Simulated assay, not measured.
Amino acid sequence: MLAAATDDVVARVLAGVDLDAAPRKALRAVALGLFDAIDAHPWAGAQLAREPWRPALLEIYENIGRLLDALGVPGHALFDAAGALVNYVLGVAGQNAANARALADRKADRPAFLTTVAAQWSRLDPGRYPFVHKAAKQLPGHDDREQFLAGVDIVLAGIATLR
């Protein structure tokens, strides 16, 4: 039953995306649609990992692969490029959903929690953790969806070098 529900969630995401739009725009829409769907239905992300042979994951790969092909990714790199993008999207979406559920289970306020974590990071040795000190300034106010899309853009930029 969970597998069928996951297939339905993914089908609704893909049906809501204009796959005839510019490939990069459509890829971002697919990625963000999956991110939001897994955030709303965290069990769907877990189900995709549990049964990767189900239609939902096949549809995700098919649509992302087709769009990457339309971007001009060479055939020899298409499988790896699709795998990298799919794994980024599903991995980050699943982790984001898990983090949100962990905060909800604790009845924690996200901004307050991130502010506390940022303060802890700021107290670490800056010689050992220079990046963490820089990131601590951005952590409390960051937007998970925006950061996710920035990651999609980074992956797509890397894929664009495969030509």
Rank of each mutant, 00 (worst) to 15 (best):
M1S: 07
M1Q: 06
A3H: 08
A5R: 13
D8C: 04
V9N: 02
V10N: 01
A11F: 00
A11R: 05
A15M: 00
G16V: 08
V17G: 02
V17E: 04
V17A: 12
D18E: 01
D18I: 00
D18L: 02
L19R: 09
A22Q: 06
A26V: 03
R28T: 01
V30A: 13
V30K: 10
A31S: 08
F35V: 01
A37Y: 03
I38W: 01
I38V: 15
D39N: 09
D39F: 00
D39S: 10
H41F: 12
W43A: 13
A44R: 05
A46R: 14
A46V: 09
Q47W: 01
Q47H: 02
A49F: 12
R50P: 05
E51K: 12
W53A: 15
P55M: 10
L58A: 07
Y61E: 12
Y61R: 14
E62D: 11
G65V: 02
G65Y: 03
L67T: 04
L68P: 11
D69E: 14
L71T: 04
G72N: 06
P74Y: 04
P74W: 08
P74Q: 05
G75S: 13
L78F: 01
D80V: 13
A81G: 07
A82C: 13
A82P: 00
G83T: 07
A84G: 12
L85H: 04
L85S: 01
Y88L: 06
Y88I: 09
Y88M: 03
Y88W: 04
V89I: 14
V92Y: 06
A93Q: 07
G94T: 09
Q95T: 06
N96W: 13
N96A: 12
N96E: 14
A97F: 04
A98G: 14
A98E: 12
A100V: 13
A100D: 12
A102C: 03
A102V: 00
L103C: 07
A104H: 04
K107P: 04
A108K: 05
A108R: 06
R110Y: 01
P111M: 11
P111R: 09
A112H: 08
L114F: 05
T116P: 11
T116L: 13
T116I: 00
V117P: 08
A119G: 07
S122H: 04
R123N: 06
D125S: 03
R128K: 14
P130N: 10
V132M: 14
H133R: 12
K134S: 09
K134A: 10
A135W: 11
K137W: 09
Q138W: 07
L139T: 01
L139D: 04
G141H: 12
H142M: 15
H142R: 15
H142A: 15
H142I: 13
D143P: 14
R145Y: 11
A150N: 08
G151L: 08
D153F: 02
I154G: 07
V155T: 09
A160P: 11
T161G: 02
